[in-house]
């Protein structure tokens, strides 16, 4: 199959990639770009472990053909925060014990970040609703919900921590 050139901004860097028309974004991220933080949990859109941000919105990398993201902006877990410093939501997850095995964590964090952009002050119900597509088998979600809620509070209390 012939490869096609696509241009995508991944974690803030413009990349030119040759991809086959049937290459899944998940495989391109993991195998071609070595961005291993994006996980395979089911491959058919049912677990959320492969969640990335596509132009700021959550998207499931296992369901997206890489060719279709030409010209778009992708954030993976490796692009959250910067190398030297954790993103405040990452800090909050760590502090609240929201990370157990960690396999759902990248997806959960990105979903949490997208939620807080859309709705800076979500209530518990809204957080749970938003995370519906991200399964976690370890935490029972309680700590994850608390971590997101507490970060929302921090952000609304201190506008200085908003990065954009």
């Amino acid at each position: 199959m012939e490869k096609r050139l696509i241009k995508v901004t991944i974690n803030g860097k413009l990349r030119e990639l040759f991809v086959k028309p049937n290459d899944l974004l998940l495989n391109v991220l993991r195998n071609d770009l070595n961005l291993m933080g994006t996980k395979y949990g089911c491959g058919i859109g049912e677990c959320g472990a492969c969640t990335v941000l596509l132009d700021g919105q959550t998207a499931l990398a296992c369901l997206i053909l890489a060719v279709t993201v030409d010209g778009q902006e992708i954030t993976t877990i490796e692009g959250m925060g910067d190398p030297a410093q954790l993103h405040p939501l990452q800090e909050s997850f760590i502090e609240h014990g929201a990370v157990q095995c960690g396999f759902c964590t990248p997806g959960m964090l990105l979903a949490g970040e997208a939620l807080l952009k859309e709705n800076p002050n979500p209530n518990e119900e809204e957080i749970r609703e938003y995370l519906r597509g991200n399964l976690c088998r370890c935490t029972g979600y309680a700590a994850i919900v608390k971590a997101i809620k507490s970060e929302a509070k921090c952000q609304s209390a201190d506008p200085g921590t908003l990065s954009e």
Binding site: M36, G37, M80, E95
Partner: peptide, 15 residues
């Protein structure tokens, strides 16, 4: 916080 939570939150732990 457990020490492995940091690398897990960064997505850099190698499963």
């Amino acid at each position: 916080p457990k020490f492995d939570a940091y690398t897990k939150a960064k997505g850099t732990i190698a499963y």
